[in-house]
Amino acid sequence: MNSRFFLLLLAAAGLVVAFAPFPVQSIAPQERTFRIEARQFAYSPSEFKVNPGDTVTIQLVSADVVHGLYVDGYNISVEADPGQTASLTFIADKPGSFRFRCNVTCGAMHPFMIGRLTVGTNSWLFRSIGLAVLGLIGFFPFSFHKERMLVEKR
């Protein structure tokens, strides 16, 4: 097979893996409430999962100093004073995995006070694994073809 055609085919397959719509199981949206306790330098629970379209309410409770909770990708946040509860409600309309992190300087390990929100399936992880597999599938015939060309050239 022509190596340019092979590369083109591989690139097309890569685009399909990266951007083709991911099969989604349709689940009726619900209202979900999570009580998250924040203390230096962790959230509890630190991971939670919702379905796309759910209305999510986070009740942030701080156990020691002032903490915040900022959700990457959603660009929303809430802050809670010690012993107080603060609420944040949003519609989980973007699927994927998102880190949430403290956005109020709370001590030494503050930049690493991180949790994880998963909305539906973490499709980008599966797409990335698919791209890695595709990369290797493409690598072998292409690199062996290159080797053969080099040998022929010699």
Partner: peptide
């Protein structure tokens, strides 16, 4: 895993 992961116990142990 330790710095960017969601596991507080690991961060505590490392710190």
């Amino acid at each position: 895993g330790v710095l960017l992961g969601p596991w507080g116990a690991l961060k505590d142990a490392a710190y």
